[in-house]
């Protein structure tokens, strides 16, 4: 029971983290029609910035805030210098150009921070276990991730659905020429959206940093998960990304936790222990394959044109 609740919360936490990453990806894709493979690099940069700034300032919160700002600025710079010129180009061009950016970022990180990973230690007040149910404790930090991510998701929803900027963003997604003709500075809007996406990726990276080690290439594996999520959820749909992210986070975490035991019931011990890790890594891809076979446009396709 204890393990089930704990793994369930872990799944939720991982899912919400994936949502932060997928939301930026799906926003950028839905609005600018840009496939950004370098999104994972922004996630990585968020983590590296956090590790650096936290060590530098000595305060976790201050360092995290600075890292968030730094990723936002980095995203905006990236958009203005490089990615802006890719709008309206073929998707293949996007894949290639941003693939080049990944190479660049990985190498730049190796040059600046060295090939060894960094650790981001948590302050004492975030490491205490918090009682969530009678007799069940859960790490405060993971709980904090859940709360922050839910808050961000809510803000994002309100921002996109209830504010003027959000309205412009949605309008830009459905007809970019028209909104430009109405006198909206579409270039600025795009830069803003990209910066927002970058900041979300950075937030995911810096929150994940204390749980995993901060290392080169950390963005790539999780980027593919984020892609799986937006494909399952329907590209361009934030609601789809949210639900799919929770779903994928749960399946991945619960699969890793319980699949080995389940397999052991059917298979011999040795066979189960070799098959289980591969099978649990494959689970979400299987899920995606099934979704695409049943609904090739994803579960919640955004209404586009």
């Amino acid at each position: 029971m204890l393990l089930v609740v704990e793994q369930f919360l872990n799944g939720l936490q991982f899912g919400l983290l994936l949502f932060l990453l997928a939301a930026g990806l799906t926003l950028v894709f839905g609005i600018m029609d840009l496939v950004n493979l370098a999104h994972g690099s922004l996630y990585m940069m968020g983590a590296y910035f956090a590790a650096t700034f936290v060590a530098w300032t000595g305060s976790f919160l201050l360092g995290a805030l600075m890292a968030l700002g730094a990723t936002l600025v980095l995203g905006i710079v990236l958009e203005v210098t490089a990615l802006r010129h890719l709008y309206g180009r073929d998707h293949l061009d996007h894949v290639l150009a941003t693939f080049g950016l990944i190479l660049f970022f990985n190498e730049a990180v190796r040059l600046i921070w060295g090939p060894a990973g960094l650790a981001l230690p948590l302050p004492a007040w975030l490491t205490v276990p918090v009682p969530i149910l009678p007799g069940i404790h859960y790490p405060a930090y993971r709980l904090a991730i859940i709360v922050v991510a839910l808050l961000v998701a809510l803000l994002l929803y309100l921002g996109v659905m209830r504010t003027r900027i959000g309205m412009l963003i949605r309008a830009g997604a459905s007809n970019r020429e028209m909104i430009g003709a109405l006198g909206i500075n579409i270039k600025l809007l795009y830069t803003l959206v990209f910066g927002l996406g970058a900041a979300l990726a950075g937030l995911a990276g810096l929150m994940q940093a204390p749980i995993l080690t901060v290392q080169i290439g950390m963005g790539e594996n999780i980027l593919i998960l984020a892609f799986v999520i937006i494909v399952i959820g329907g590209i361009g749909s934030i609601r789809g990304a949210f639900l799919a992210a929770i779903f994928v986070g749960m399946i991945d975490t619960l699969g890793r936790a319980f699949l080995p035991n389940l397999l052991r019931q059917v298979l011999s011990g040795a066979a189960a222990s070799t098959a289980a890790p591969a099978l649990s890594s494959m689970l979400i891809y299987l899920l995606m394959a099934i979704v695409l076979v049943v609904r090739p446009e994803g579960l919640f396709p955004a209404n586009r044109r």
């Binding site: 890719l86 180009r89 290639l96 693939f99 080049g100 950016l101 190479l103 660049f104 970022f105 190498e107």
Partner: peptide, 12 residues
């Protein structure tokens, strides 16, 4: 890769 990456971008 620091050179290769931007080179790819330019090629695209």
């Amino acid at each position: 890769a620091l050179i290769m990456g931007p080179l790819l971008l330019l090629i695209v």
